[in-house]
């Protein structure tokens, strides 16, 4: 069942199109990553679906319209930096969130323990480090037991220890069965946390789907032989070989499924009386996929 349906969403600031006809469906229980470089339209998308930015055109619907304009009560979200009353402590800030969400059943003490802040619950927000602020923000998103939690660049500006801590907390949140939407420009973060991904660049949706399908784990083969034409014919006839191309006079590059090993390619050549003079495998990296998906813009830039 979709928790969020986005249809042809567009946002323009004067002549600048921040978001261009975005279509996206987010299913319940998924951990969805909105991935894109800075300024790609991720935060604009989140701003619109959270009702703090007005869309220029298009529409979106939460929970099939079940909660009307009270849909935000079922969502816990933090956009960009964590914003709380700086002169209030964690406990009082969370009590205000509780009031806004009209929720009374939350154990604030337990929430603060979950995010490792119980020991600083009486300290004013302005005295917190960035990591502590981020953890308080996560606790705030969990008030009222929302169906969906949204995080925007949750590890931005944190040190490695802070990043690890926040990621652990996010994983625990995800494991609790909630739908998680997370905007990030960090591929590694999306790969480690998310089950699904939508790649956005310059306000356009470039790709969307399961992380495993969008980011392939194909292997790249670099092969040379004394019988290059024969080798090409043999490889081209195999379904697990993709994108065969000749790099040089006697070098061929191709992609192959990760289930096929280099030994099997070696045996294939041997069985066809072809002598290999070079066989090199390279694992395709996540970054390559990401760059490929956003390639035309990179060229433009």
């Amino acid at each position: 069942m979709p928790v969020l349906q986005i249809n042809n969403l567009t946002k323009r600031y004067g002549k600048l199109t921040a978001l261009d006809n975005l279509n996206l469906t987010i299913e319940a229980g998924n951990i969805y990553g909105l991935l894109g470089p800075n300024g790609s339209g991720k935060t604009t998308t989140l701003g619109i679906i959270l009702g703090i930015l007005a869309e220029t055109s298009g529409s979106f619907e939460w929970f099939d319209g079940e909660y009307g304009d009270k849909y935000r009560m079922r969502i816990g979200a933090i956009l960009e930096t964590p914003n709380f009353y700086p002169y209030l402590n964690a406990q009082k800030n969370l009590e205000i969130v509780q009031d806004i969400k009209q929720s009374s059943g939350d154990d604030i003490e337990a929430l603060l323990t979950t995010v490792n802040l119980a020991h600083r619950k009486d300290s004013k927000f302005r005295t917190y480090s960035l990591g502590m602020k981020q953890r308080l923000a996560i606790a705030a998103t969990l008030i009222g037991s929302p169906d969906v939690v949204i995080f925007d660049e949750p590890t931005n500006g944190l040190d490695p220890e802070g990043i690890a801590e926040v990621r652990n907390i996010l994983r625990r949140v995800a494991d609790s069965g909630k739908t998680v939407i997370m905007a990030s420009h960090l591929l590694d973060e999306v790969e480690k946390i998310c089950s699904h991904v939508a790649i956005i660049k310059d306000g356009h949706l470039r790709a969307t789907g399961e992380v495993g399908k969008i980011f392939t784990d194909d292997t790249t083969l670099i092969i040379s032989s004394n019988n290059l034409d024969g080798l090409k014919d043999v490889l081209a006839s195999r379904s697990y070989i993709k994108d065969l191309s000749q790099l040089d006079n006697n070098i061929v590059e191709c992609q192959m499924n990760s289930e096929i090993t280099a030994e099997e390619i070696c045996r294939l050549a041997f069985d066809n009386n072809i002598m290999l003079t070079r066989l090199e495998t390279r694992k395709r990296r996540l970054e390559d996929d990401f760059l490929e998906l956003t390639k035309d813009n990179i060229t433009k830039n």
């Binding site: 959270l50 009702g51 703090i52 009270k70 935000r72 009560m73 969502i75 816990g76 979200a77 933090i78 956009l79 914003n83 709380f84 009353y85 969130v97 806004i100 969400k101 009209q102 705030a140 008030i143 009222g144």
Partner: peptide
């Protein structure tokens, strides 16, 4: 915090 209040509900 205004923006955050709206986001919270």
């Amino acid at each position: 915090t205004m923006r955050q209040n709206i986001i919270f509900g």
